[in-house]
Amino acid sequence: MFSPYYKASGRGDPIDHSCLNIALYGPNHRWVMTERPGADVSRDARNLRIGPSGMRWDGDVLEIDIAERDTRLFNPFHRPVRGKVRVMPEALNAQSFALDPREDHVWQCMAPRARIEVKMDEPGVSWSGNAYFDHNRGREPLESGFRAWHWSRAHMRRGAVVCYEGERGDGSVFASAIRFDRNAVPDEIDLPAIASLPRSRWQVERRTRSEIGVAKVRRTWEDTPFYARSELSSKLLGEEVVAVQESLDMRRFASPVVQFMLPFRMPRRTA
Results as ranks from 00 to 15, higher is better:
M1E: 14
F2M: 12
G12N: 13
N21T: 13
I22Y: 10
G26P: 08
N28C: 11
H29R: 15
E35I: 10
V41D: 06
S42C: 09
D44F: 08
R46N: 12
N47V: 07
W57Y: 07
R69A: 09
L73N: 05
F74S: 08
P76S: 07
G83A: 07
G83D: 04
V85K: 09
L92T: 11
Q95G: 00
S96W: 12
S96L: 03
F97D: 09
P101K: 11
R102C: 04
W107I: 08
C109I: 14
P112G: 03
V118N: 03
K119S: 15
M120R: 10
S128K: 13
S128N: 12
G129H: 09
A131R: 02
D134N: 02
H135L: 10
R139C: 11
R139E: 11
G145L: 10
R153T: 01
A154I: 06
H155Y: 11
R158P: 00
R158D: 15
A160C: 09
R168S: 00
G169C: 08
S172Y: 06
A177C: 14
D181H: 04
V185R: 15
D187P: 00
A195M: 07
L197N: 02
R209N: 01
R209Y: 12
S210H: 10
A215V: 04
K216P: 00
V217G: 00
R218Q: 13
A228I: 02
S230A: 11
L237T: 05
G238S: 05
D249T: 00
R252G: 02
S255A: 09
P263W: 05
F264S: 12
R265I: 09
P267G: 02
